[in-house]
């Protein structure tokens, strides 16, 4: 079982997140591996462990600081780490990012075939959930997205997909791009031995040239969307908090009635 997991470097949810020049501010200080990618790493490790053999790659795309995302994946137990970094990638939209990741996936796949690419259900900064679909389309691989359960057997992957109106079972031949939800599993914690080992594990660093990607096809110049303004929302004004001493609910109801909401 050979699996590649995509991981993204995002601002920590608990930090003061912001925009700089139309892009999400990402710094080493309060950046981390996207929490939902832990479920993707976990799914890959579980499949490898169940198969009793195989290799798991973690891949990230981003500036120098983004290497922290694959280091985290190494701490969790993946075998190999790849960091795609190139100034030409900055400002890419989801289609540009997918093209870069697809090129990196092909490079790994060409060395020895992969069975799966596993991603998280969304990145907690942009939350668009578009990348897995764009990646599957670019690679021309099966698309199995929003999996809350995943099994692989005889060259076929089958997922359980919980949608608001129905629960589906969807099957497709390998190789496939699978995105897993936070219901799929409970991610493990890195143990001390893995944390120590991860420090000395090599991280492959690839550029657009290494991938054979034409710089004009990605980056800000090729993006179909551009952020023209980003500004912090003002905090809510005139907030009121009361302590219930037998009348708190009445005060709440009166507030709603006064606002025409009840």
């Amino acid at each position: 079982m050979r699996i590649l997991v995509t991981v993204k470097f995002v601002p920590d949810l608990q930090s003061q997140r912001s925009f700089t020049d139309g892009a999400v501010t990402r710094t080493g200080d309060d950046g981390t591996m996207n929490e939902l990618d832990e479920n993707a790493v976990e799914a890959a490790l579980q499949l490898k462990e169940a198969a009793g053999e195989g290799e798991v790659y973690a891949l990230t795309v981003g500036g120098d600081d983004a290497v922290a995302a694959v280091r985290k994946a190494l701490q969790l137990g993946v075998d190999h780490a790849i960091h795609v970094s190139d100034a030409g990638i900055a400002g890419s939209d989801v289609f540009g990012t997918a093209a870069v990741i697809a090129a990196a996936v092909r490079k790994v796949h060409d060395e020895a075939p992969l069975d799966l690419v596993i991603t998280g259900m969304a990145a907690l900064d942009g939350l668009t959930s578009m990348l897995p679909t764009a990646l599957a389309a670019d690679l021309g691989w099966s698309q199995l997205t929003l999996a809350s359960g995943l099994t692989v057997e005889d060259g076929t992957a089958t997922i359980v997909r919980h949608l608001p109106d129905a629960h589906e079972n969807v099957a497709a031949p390998l190789p496939a791009v699978v995105s897993v939800t936070d219901e799929a599993n409970k991610p493990r914690y890195p143990n001390f031995k893995l944390i120590m080992a991860a420090r000395s594990k090599p991280v492959a660093t690839w550029t657009l040239a290494d991938l054979g990607v034409d710089a004009s096809s990605v980056g800000a110049g090729a993006a179909r969307t551009v952020v023209v303004d980003a500004s912090p929302r003002p905090p809510r004004e005139n907030r009121v908090t009361v302590t219930d001493t037998g009348e708190g609910g009445v005060a709440l109801a009166d507030f709603l009635i006064e606002k025409g909401l009840a």
Binding site: T241, A253, I257
Partner: peptide
Amino acid sequence: IFEIADFGVVGDLNDVLPQAIARIEEH
């Protein structure tokens, strides 16, 4: 949650919600 609430009640929901429901019904 109180940092983003326009109106907050510190209390047990088992006490507060029945009061609110009764007040809205009365209104």
